[in-house]
Simulated scan of single mutants.
Amino acid sequence: MGVPIRQAGEADREVLVQLLDRAFMQDPVSSWVFPDESHRRQVHGAFLGVFIDVALAEGRVDLAEDHAAMALWLDVPAGAPEEDGTPARMREAADPDNERAELVGRLTGELHPHDRAHAYLLMIGVIPERQGEGLGTELIAPVLERCDREGVPAYLEASSERSRGLYERLGFVFTGTAVQLPRGPRMWPMWREPRG
């Protein structure tokens, strides 16, 4: 396909927020965090903006030149993680009275492996009208190729059955313990060993 991709910076923040907001507006996890759709439309971008800020500050953001897709990556070192205030920042930025806005981050954090250094696909988003065209694979492939060259595993949490299938085709394997959101959907932690 050959989608032109570049690394995004702070100047792209608003484009990135709008892209993720559109990509995840109907996602099962976003719908659980913010069950009322009209309220979700008001606060969803602020919620997802925290992920973008973390990736811009501590990782990398790959953006399709046409702004149809993006991927947020972090390099996670081995060892016990430092205290991470990101879940609380997500809640404070978007919806301080909504415990779910923090709970989703705490529950995924509890299952995140830290025994080996790895590339963490924090989020990947494709605007709805372009989903199913292979843009996600185009964004992920260069990082997975680097992981393979350097012998580094990769990790992510799939938020839907559809995305889980995509990641399985790319070599990710379900770790065996799902994140079960209370009275809500599951998320599937997935690990990929480097190839070659």
Rank of each mutant, 00 (worst) to 15 (best):
D115Q: 13
L111F: 09
R13H: 11
Q26L: 10
Y167D: 10
E133Q: 13
D36K: 13
R22A: 13
A117K: 13
V17Q: 01
R22W: 00
F174D: 15
R183T: 11
P77G: 10
G79I: 04
H114V: 02
E129H: 14
L170W: 06
R183Y: 08
R130T: 01
W73K: 04
V50H: 02
Q131P: 06
V152W: 08
G134T: 09
D75Y: 11
A154K: 07
R116V: 14
P113E: 03
E133S: 14
L19T: 01
Y120F: 14
D21T: 15
V173Y: 10
E102P: 05
R106A: 07
G49E: 04
W191V: 09
A93P: 03
R60Y: 00
D36S: 11
I5Y: 03
M187F: 05
G79T: 08
A101L: 05
G45M: 03
G184N: 13
R169L: 11
E58M: 07
L181Q: 13
A141Y: 00
Y155L: 11
D75V: 09
R106E: 08
L111K: 06
V54E: 12
A78K: 07
D97G: 12
E102Y: 06
P81N: 08
G105N: 03
A57I: 09
A64F: 02
V152H: 03
E193Q: 15
E58Y: 05
E102A: 14
H44T: 00
C147M: 09
M190W: 10
S163M: 06
G105Q: 02
P35I: 14
L181I: 11
E161H: 14
R162L: 14
A101I: 04
L72E: 01
Q42E: 10
E110W: 12
R146T: 08
L19W: 03
L72Y: 00
R6M: 00
A8T: 04
T86H: 05
R60V: 03
H39I: 10
G134Q: 12
I124E: 06
D12F: 14
R169T: 15
V33E: 05
V54I: 11
R13G: 05
I127F: 05
A68Q: 09
W191H: 10
